[in-house]
Design a protein around this nucleic acid. Structure first.
Length: 505
DNA sequence: GGCCCTTTGAAGTAC
DNA sequence: GTACTTCAAAGGGCC
């Protein structure tokens, strides 16, 4: 149980202010500039990001009081359902391992919400909050796809002292105690930054598009503050509507640990009765943006009546940038917790496990089942090459066999008998040039992700690691300037076939 | 049916 | 150490 600090939740919070985003300088500057126009700016910002939230809520006509009433009503309804859910969870926890409820996740994060009516955060502020906090459940908590069932005492990786909520028997990981306390003062009055305003593919209006979205949504106050999907549905699904990924009945071979690992397992449909049962796929833990998307997607869909995820994701990406640091910090922190938990649950899992699976799958479909060299080592062995010194065929690379890259078929005229061994690599003859263009088209230089080095996750045993490294470090000049990065993001996947997304009106 | 698109971030591979 | 690649979610679109 490394790097877990249970010391009063000091794992979070204060250092959030140390987050240094790529555009931190701009934001700081704006903070200073906004001193005298703070009020106007706040209104403007709020209107930019939350315009649709307000407009689409017919209750808003009746004034904030009506909105508040609606929210409170909703909170009450939700609280009832939420209580039922917790009871249900408790029952299931007392039950067997595999009595997963329809929504078995979201177990240990039911923290007292400061935004509850009895909380310290007054809902009476007229300011438009960017953060959705209306329910008895922290909005972020609903995102974690973990199951109570996976945190019972039988779990080999987790401690048992997890419950902090009175009357609710819960287990909570040590590092999850005091989960996600928000920064002092909360973020309820934080207004979104307008600093992020690059040339949009879809110019932002209410939905990130140029045309204001017509308010045709059904009357629901839920749109004003949180994703509608966060409301418990009649089917008993969790508010997120996300089926719990752990609801995968383990095979006979799976022990408890393996079952625990199913928490990230994709709920495969009834597996084909072929060969041996497939190993459950442990997915990567979601990063901060993915968590944000998961929470906000339904809301954006509702607001914009868009369903195409590509367009939705563009909007979400813009909104992500429009978030304040504090708001983003919540998701970074949540993502960090997710990774921690993932590490605890699957200590031997690595992202490498899933690395290259898609491409490999595609490749394997095209290649003969028996001809896959699989690796340079295998390839060299196949052709009688020296594993340490010989170069593998025409690729002139030791690390990646070109035959493998080309789909397992040997394209070298010398390779069939292994008689020809290529000379050492020439610096002017890089391997990619030898790849089949059809299989490996030359991709244009893609902007390097700043996350690779800037946002490296460091175990929380270090005091300054509460957020990705770059977030707590001074604005490090990224490989691309902020502007260039923003602009280049539009070209990030240019090697893929581009397709014009619908322009909603 | 399966890949593409689109986003950001994390982590992998390649050099 | 740097650059690049892949995967994570999502669901309509497309072949």
């Amino acid at each position: 149980m490394p790097q877990l600090n249970s010391g009063g939740g000091d794992d979070l919070g204060a250092n959030d202010e140390m987050i240094s985003f790529k555009d931190e300088g701009e934001q700081d500057e704006k903070i200073q500039e906004s001193a005298f126009t703070e009020r106007d700016l706040a209104d403007l910002k709020s209107s930019l990001v939350n315009e649709s939230e307000i407009n689409q809520n017919p209750n808003s006509v009746a004034g904030p009081g009506a909105i508040r009433r609606g929210q409170q009503d909703e909170q009450r309804v939700y609280s009832d359902k939420h209580r039922d859910h917790l009871d249900d969870v408790s029952k299931h926890q007392d039950g067997g391992m595999y009595k997963a409820p329809p929504y078995s996740g979201y177990p240990f994060l039911m923290l007292p919400d400061p935004y509850l009516p009895n909380g310290s955060m007054s809902p009476s502020s007229n300011k438009v909050s960017v953060v959705q906090q209306p329910h008895g459940m922290h909005p972020i908590t609903s995102l974690l796809p973990y199951s109570n069932d996976h945190f019972n005492s039988s779990s080999p990786h987790l401690p048992t002292d997890m419950s902090q909520k009175p009357g609710v028997h819960r287990h909570q990981s040590q590092d999850l105690s005091g989960f996600y306390p928000l920064p002092p003062g909360g973020v309820g009055q934080i207004t979104p930054s307008v600093g992020w305003q690059s040339q949009p593919v879809y110019p932002i209006s209410s939905c990130g598009f140029r045309q204001p979205y017509p308010s045709s949504l059904p009357s629901s106050s839920s749109y004003s503050r949180f994703s509608p999907s966060l409301v418990l549905g009649p089917s008993g699904m969790h508010p997120t509507g996300i089926p719990h990924p752990a609801i995968v009945p383990p095979t006979g071979k799976q022990d408890h640990e393996q079952y625990d690992r199913n928490m990230y397992a994709k709920p495969h449909p009834e597996p084909k009765r072929e060969k041996e049962p497939k190993k459950p796929v442990i997915k990567k833990p979601l990063n901060a943006f993915m968590l944000y998307m998961k929470e906000m997607r339904a809301k954006v869909i509702a607001e914009c009546t868009l369903k195409e995820s590509a367009a939705i994701n563009q909007i979400l990406g813009r909104r992500w940038h429009a978030l304040t640091r504090e708001e983003q910090a919540k998701y970074y922190e949540l993502a960090r917790k997710e990774r921690q938990l993932h590490m605890q649950l699957y200590p031997s899992w690595s992202a490498r496990d899933n690395y290259g699976k898609k491409k490999r799958r595609k490749r394997e479909k095209q290649q003969d089942s028996n001809s896959d060299p699989g690796s340079p080592k295998k390839c060299r062995a196949r052709f009688g090459l020296n594993q340490q010194t010989d170069w593998c065929g025409p690729c002139r690379r030791k690390k990646k066999c070109v035959r493998y890259l080309q789909g397992g078929r040997c394209a070298s005229p010398h390779s069939s008998d292994g008689s020809a061994i290529d000379s050492p690599p020439s610096p002017v003859n890089p391997a990619p040039a030898l790849l089949s263009p059809a299989r490996a088209p030359p991709a244009p230089p893609t902007p390097a992700s700043p996350s690779a080095t800037d946002l490296t996750y460091v175990p929380s045993s270090l005091p300054s690691d509460r957020l990705p490294l770059s977030l707590s470090a001074p604005a490090k000049p990224s490989r691309l300037s902020v502007k260039a990065l923003t602009e280049s993001q539009h070209h990030h996947h240019h090697h893929h076939r581009r397709r014009a997304l619908p322009q909603p009106h």
